[in-house]
């Protein structure tokens, strides 16, 4: 679209983000650069501040200081809905769908968001055929056509997770932020999930939090390790695998965690 978009540019940049819960500091000088078109994973033990970082970037929390640049524009303090309209999508660690609405209605909200139908008071939604068609296409694409009229809360966990991902992707965002998309899934489901993520996020910039190292190493181009709210290391998967600090701090703790 932009003529000057020849070389990859920064999709997202954070500069020295600090965040506090009350008196306790939970993020320390987080500076990140996410290149356009890359898949960037954030890993780290529980309580490292990964989800807090997500909440801060997406505008749910306002950082105490530091700034956030999205597509080169300073968006510090922007509300989530505005960021989403600028081209950001997010999935949650705990499923955050419309549990009481059917799968179809869930995805229809997504389609409305994508088509930018927000304050329309003059049409009967059920009679807006293009919306219905697009929703049904989307349903088929993510393999939930059979569950069209089932309330989302009654979907199986794996399928519910797919729906969660689809809602994050709904607005056709440029930057997708996924918070542990494969959390709590079986091996087979995880495999399918990775496939779906690859398919849906083709050509997009992805920022992903994940615990499952197989998922991380199979998806990510770059990895940032977060530990106690600080960035321990950033680099390619190979660099991270070789990094002694990371081994000490993170992989060690994970082993202890697994043993317990």
């Amino acid at each position: 679209m932009n003529p000057d978009r020849k070389q990859p540019r920064n999709m997202l940049m954070t500069k020295r983000l600090n965040h506090y819960f009350g008196e306790r500091q939970v993020l320390f000088n987080i500076s990140l650069e996410i290149q356009e078109g890359t898949r960037h994973a954030i890993i780290g033990p529980n309580g490292a501040g990964k989800t807090t970082l997500f909440n801060t970037i997406t505008g749910k929390y306002r950082p105490k200081n530091g700034s956030i640049l999205f597509k080169g524009k300073d968006v510090t303090g922007f509300k989530p809905d505005k960021l989403v309209r600028m081209g950001l999508g997010r999935s949650f660690q705990i499923n955050s769908t419309f549990a009481g609405l059917t799968t179809f209605q869930n995805l229809r909200m997504a389609v409305l968001a994508r088509k930018n139908i927000r304050f329309n008071f003059f049409r009967n939604l059920d009679k807006m055929q293009p919306v219905t068609d697009e929703t049904d296409t989307l349903l088929a694409r993510i393999g939930l056509a059979a569950e069209r009229n089932l309330p989302a809360g009654l979907l199986s966990y794996g399928k519910h997770r797919c729906l969660e991902l689809s809602l994050a992707m709904a607005t056709d965002p440029d930057l997708v932020m996924l918070d542990e998309p494969a959390a709590g899934m079986s091996r087979i489901e995880t495999h399918q999930m990775v496939k779906l993520i690859r398919e849906l996020t083709h050509n997009k910039t992805v920022l992903i939090i994940e615990h499952d190292m197989d998922v991380v190493f199979s998806l990510a181009d770059r990895i940032t390790v977060l530990h106690h709210g600080e960035i321990l290391a950033t680099g390619t998967p190979e660099e991270i695998k070789a990094n002694q600090d990371v081994k000490d701090a993170y992989l060690g703790e994970t082993k202890v965690g697994n043993a317990a």
């Binding site: 809905d81 997010r90 955050s96 769908t97 909200m109 409305l112 139908i117 927000r118 939604l125």
Partner: peptide, 24 residues
């Protein structure tokens, strides 16, 4: 029954998700 009406129901169900779909 309008598109806005469906936003209404969605807010009842999960206001956070509505926000993250880009609705104010």
């Amino acid at each position: 029954r309008t598109p806005f009406g469906s936003i209404m129901v969605s807010i009842r169900d999960n206001p956070d998700r509505v926000t993250y779909l880009g609705f104010n």
